[in-house]
């Protein structure tokens, strides 16, 4: 199968790889670069578990061709913790029991991060809207919504 070069930044690190032509970003992230934080739930755009942030915008890595990401800045949940210290969203998801099996969690956290990056003090409705493309089949949405609101509060306390 034809290989094509792709080059982008993943969680702050330069990456350059030869990938199968037409490969989706999730395949490249997981199988080539070893970042298994984006999960492949449906490969149809409906579950949100593969959500990543590309150039500041939430996107679905299962519907994104890796080749279209040349030069892009890509963030995944796998890159959030710094030196073993969890990101406030990760901490809040733990504290609020917002994960059960955890399959949806990396996508939820990316969707939440995209929200908080543009709207640091969201309302409950803002959170519900921001998570509306992400499906959770076990925790139930209340703890997840609570976790995002908690993270937003702890961010604004730290900033104060």
């Amino acid at each position: 199968m034809a290989k094509v070069p792709v080059q982008f930044t993943l969680n702050g690190e330069e990456k350059a790889e030869f990938v199968d032509a037409g490969a989706t970003l999730i395949k490249v992230l997981r199988d080539k670069l070893g970042d298994t934080s984006p999960k492949g739930g449906c490969n149809q755009g409906t579950c949100g578990s593969c959500s990543v942030i590309i150039d500041g915008e939430l996107r679905l890595s299962c519907l994104t061709l890796a080749e279209t990401c040349n030069g892009a800045d890509i963030l995944t949940t796998g890159g959030l913790a710094r030196d073993g210290v969890l990101h406030p969203l990760q901490r809040a998801f733990m504290d609020e029991f917002a994960a059960q099996c955890g399959f949806c969690t990396p996508g939820m956290i990316m969707a939440a991060k995209a929200l908080l990056d543009s709207n640091p003090k969201p309302t409950r409705e803002d959170v519900i809207d921001a998570l509306s493309g992400n499906i959770c089949r076990c925790t139930g949405y209340e703890p997840i919504i609570r976790a995002v609101l908690t993270a937003a509060r702890s961010n604004s306390q730290n900033a104060a």
């Binding site: 755009g45 949100g48 915008e57 996107r59 679905l60 519907l63 994104t64 995209a114 493309g133």
Partner: peptide, 9 residues
């Protein structure tokens, strides 16, 4: 149209 990620795409 869709959720936030779909709208960005």
């Amino acid at each position: 149209v869709g959720g936030p990620a779909i709208r960005n795409m």
